[in-house]
């Protein structure tokens, strides 16, 4: 928890998107979702737009604001994307008489963004004579997704079904004998599923009989374990250091992976301590080998190995009994 040397807002600052325009054209409200807090800019599937305009309303805890020690309150909408180092801000204006709702809009230039931008709001005021102090902000930020067709939070994983031998991605050719390949570089980890490997995608998309389902789940589990192991190693090896040489939380999916898995890999250590420990172990290679079973355990947990394996064993058992009978 961050400590501020002055009083900040305790009440909630909420942000919601109210309208989206692409160039001059209003987009249907189905391009954004308040539940998912996502704007999907690719719903119209055009690549020739120049900018999008996003209209928002922020709701402030007005009673607290009135009674608090803050002057010159302003509300600022902030649009950023790490991949392009883009940062745009827009000042919101109060609407109505009680200053509870602040509205405004911000422009997102396509040339300055690539995949997922984050939209948040900051409340700024003069505190104890110091202007520009951040006194609050939205906790639940919005994602503006330039590649999504529907406004849902992207999964932590992309699945690309492609024939390794004949597909357009030439770099996959050398792997044509593999049923799948996990790629952990880039915005999101991707599992490339080889449709040229006979039976794999049919099996994964199969339903039907219990035995079929059990095998499918086992395969899915194996792929998932592979993925979790790969993303964990990738996240640990890409850690960036601050000026003092301490590792920093990496952001994006790597952040989620580390925060989720470290508690299983280094049980009993929390947060930044676990991050420093894992970084030190990897860098110095001492105790790194000993951690491998824990990493595989953590990956397996996430892939629900135990449950799927259990189901599979039960089903196989039952089908063997049935065939013997």
């Amino acid at each position: 928890m961050k400590v501020f040397p002055y009083r900040t807002l305790a009440g909630e600052v909420a942000l919601r998107v109210t309208a989206v325009k692409q160039d001059q054209k209003d987009l249907h409200t189905s391009v954004f979702s308040g539940d998912e807090r996502v704007v999907a800019l690719h719903q119209v599937e055009r690549d020739d737009w120049t900018y999008a305009r996003i209209g928002v309303t922020a709701t402030l805890p007005v009673k607290e604001l009135d009674e608090g020690p803050w002057q010159d309150v302003s509300v600022v909408l902030v649009l950023t994307e790490k991949a392009t180092n883009a940062r745009t801000t827009a000042v919101l204006r109060p609407r109505g008489s009680d200053n509870a709702e602040w509205t405004g809009r911000i422009r997102l230039w396509r040339a300055a963004h690539r995949s997922q931008a984050e939209l948040s709001v900051s409340v700024v005021a003069t505190v104890d004579g110091v202007p520009g102090r951040i006194i609050g902000g939205s906790e639940d930020n919005w994602v503006v997704d330039l590649t999504a067709r529907t406004p849902v939070r992207r999964r932590e994983l992309q699945i690309n079904e492609v024939d390794f031998a004949t597909g357009s991605e030439e770099w996959l050719r050398p792997f044509k004998d593999a049923p799948w390949i996990v790629e952990t570089s880039g915005d999101l980890p991707t599992v490339h599923l080889n449709t040229g490997f006979e039976g794999v995608s049919e099996l994964l998309n199969s339903g039907g009989a219990p035995l079929e389902r059990a095998v499918r789940d086992m395969l899915a589990t194996q792929i998932a374990t592979d993925i979790w192991t790969a993303v964990f190693h990738s996240a640990v090896s890409d850690l960036e250091l601050d000026e003092e040489g301490n590792p920093e939380w990496p952001g994006g999916w790597r952040d989620a992976v580390l925060r989720g898995m470290l508690s299983d890999v280094l049980p009993g250590m929390s947060g930044i301590d676990a991050l420093s420990e894992i970084h030190a172990r990897r860098r110095e290679s001492s105790g790194w080998n000993e951690l491998q079973p824990r990493i595989s355990y953590a990956a397996g947990r996430r892939a629900k190995v135990a449950r799927n394996l259990g189901t599979a064993i039960r089903v196989l058992d039952a089908s063997q009994k049935a065939s013997k009978a």
């Binding site: 002055y6 120049t50 600022v76 422009r107 230039w109 040339a111 900051s122 700024v124 520009g132 102090r133």
Partner: peptide, 23 residues
């Protein structure tokens, strides 16, 4: 961490036109 530079030192809005022309 406690000051929003965008408010203390407001920049003008960026327009993509010049970049587009450059490209």
């Amino acid at each position: 961490g406690t000051l929003l530079y965008d408010v203390l030192a407001e920049d003008d809005d960026w327009y993509g036109d010049a970049l587009e022309a450059w490209v």
